[in-house]
Structure formats: C-alpha cells, structure tokens
Design a binder for these strands. Structure first.
Length: 269
DNA sequence: CTCTATGTTTAATT
DNA sequence: GAATTAAACATAGA
C-alpha cells in the first residue's frame, strides 16, 4: 500500500494514537525487518520512552522519542500500522508491536503488519543514511519547479525513472509517477533532460493533482487494499484513456510496469 | 503451475 | 567511473 498518501495517512493516525504516549512494551522477532538490530536492542531502545512527534519524509516515518531516540519505519511494499487494543491477539503477518499508555491510564497498542517483509524498523540515536539521502518532500516542502528542473536536467534517464528517484523528490512511487505523467501529458519514456521548463511546471502540477486525489481516496481507507477506481491509467492497460479513448499501453521502465496513453502523452525525446 | 504486485538494494553488464 | 539493467528479497492473490 505505500504510496506517499498512504504513508501520510498512517503518519497522521500514529501521531494521534502515540503522540504524548509512553511506550510500555515493544517487540519484534523479525530480524529481516529489524536489520541490523536485534529484537533485544529494539525493545531496549523503546520501552519507557515517550513519543514526542511522528514525522515523515517521503515513504519514511520517523517517531521522535523523549531521549533523542528515533524510530524509523519504512513500509516496503506491504507494510501497514494498525491500531489495536492491548490484549488483541497477534494479527496475520504481524511483525512488530508497540504497546503504550496515556496519562489517563488507558493502554493500547499499534501493530506493524507486513506480509512480504520488505519494510524496515530501525531505532537509532542519529538520522539514518536513507533518511538523509531523501530529496524534498512534496507535502512537507512543496515542489520547487526551478530545483526540480535542475535535477531533471542532470539525467538522461527516462523522466519516470527520474521522478521516482527518492533523492530528487521524496515519496514519488510507481503509481504517482504514472498518474502524474498522464495528467501532464508527458510520455514516461521521455529523456529527463529533454523537458522544457514549462514541461517541468506541468509535471509538478500533475504530481500535485495525483497526490491530492490519492490523499482524498485514502483518507477513509482502513485496510491496505481500499483503493481501486481512483486511477486514470495505473492498472488500466488495454482500457480506454479517460482523455481520448485510445487504449492504454503497458511497458516496463526501470523494471517497473508503466501504463500510459500513446496518443495524448507526448514524447519530448 | 504462472504471472503480478504499492519498494529498495545489490550484483552484473554495457 | 558512470549509467543501465536484471535479479533479489518474501508473500499473497488472481
């Protein structure tokens, strides 16, 4: 589920659930998700701490604790944080749990569920390299068209590949990139450095439009799969383009499935 | 059985 | 070196 909008929704929920709460227990036995930590160091870093802030940059979540410890969470492909009662049984594909108490004494917990286990959970005192390497976040920092143009001009990769580069813009995933390029009427295979300044402006607007739609669609979702009819071209290979009716094409760019309209999305070069 | 999947990292190749 | 491309990771669902 993790596109930028999903991670932001989860951030908001975690903030509400955990902000100001004290961690009473923290457990995970999944060394793949915890790497390079051990289950014991994970527990020791968190128990007794109070959550001061839940932040996000791109697809990374960052919980800031009262002793300066930070818990970084990446959801990978199938990760999801779910609120539960403290005594609720272990969920299917539950990989970690954090139990907490509030001032009023009420206790509950959040569970990290991740079937494919591509996600990460890292408790550290310092920022991690993955977080530091992130470019500006479209929601936190906005999109600076000038800076984006400079970054895109530096590469001859396909523009879709470039906008998904987390150091250029943090949080743009396959779906957002596909949808934004459709909105902008730009062929995803276009060379990144072939876009005009106007193209970059249009692309930035396309990203905002796609992001806005995604946020709206996800706001009410409670499960990882509540999202279908909100996309214009993603997952719609062979279906008519909503703009001109041509069949949506399906190709592979950078190893990722890409759908686009061959007639209204124009190739720059 | 085969194919696909919202993401990222690493190995191999050009 | 840089830049691309393919493979790998692990699991579920169609």
């Amino acid at each position: 589920m993790p596109e930028l909008a999903d991670v932001e929704i989860i951030r908001q929920r975690l903030e509400k659930a955990l902000g100001g709460a004290t961690i009473t227990a923290a457990q995970s036995n999944d060394r793949r998700i915890l790497r390079p930590q051990t289950p014991l160091s994970f527990t020791r870093a968190l128990v007794g701490r109070t959550v001061e802030e839940v932040g996000r940059s791109g697809k990374w979540l960052r919980l800031e604790l009262d002793d300066g410890t930070r818990l970084f969470s990446h959801l990978g492909m199938t990760g999801w944080w779910v609120e539960h009662e403290r005594d609720d049984p272990k969920q299917k594909a539950e990989r970690a749990r954090i139990d907490f108490a509030r001032d009023d004494g009420r206790e509950s917990s959040v569970r990290y569920v991740d079937s494919r286990r591509f996600g990460r959970l890292i408790a550290a005192k310092d920022e991690i390299p993955e977080w530091i390497a992130l470019g500006p976040d479209p929601l936190v920092d906005g999109i600076d068209v000038k800076k984006l143009a400079v970054a895109l001009a530096r590469s001859r990769r396909a523009v879709k590949d470039a906008v998904m580069d987390q150091s250029i813009l943090a949080g743009i995933g396959n779906i957002l990139a596909i949808e934004a390029l459709w909105h902008a009427r730009i062929d995803p295979r276009s060379s990144s450095d072939a876009l005009s300044r106007a193209d970059v402006g249009t692309l930035a607007r396309g990203l905002k439009t796609a992001l806005r739609r995604e946020l709206k669609a996800r706001a009410g979702a409670t499960r990882p799969d509540e999202w279908q009819d909100v996309f214009s071209v993603y997952g719609r290979a062979g279906a008519p383009c909503p703009r001109d009716g041509s069949p949506i094409a399906r190709i592979v760019i950078g190893g990722r499935t890409t759908t686009f309209c061959r007639t209204c999305q124009i190739r720059r070069s």
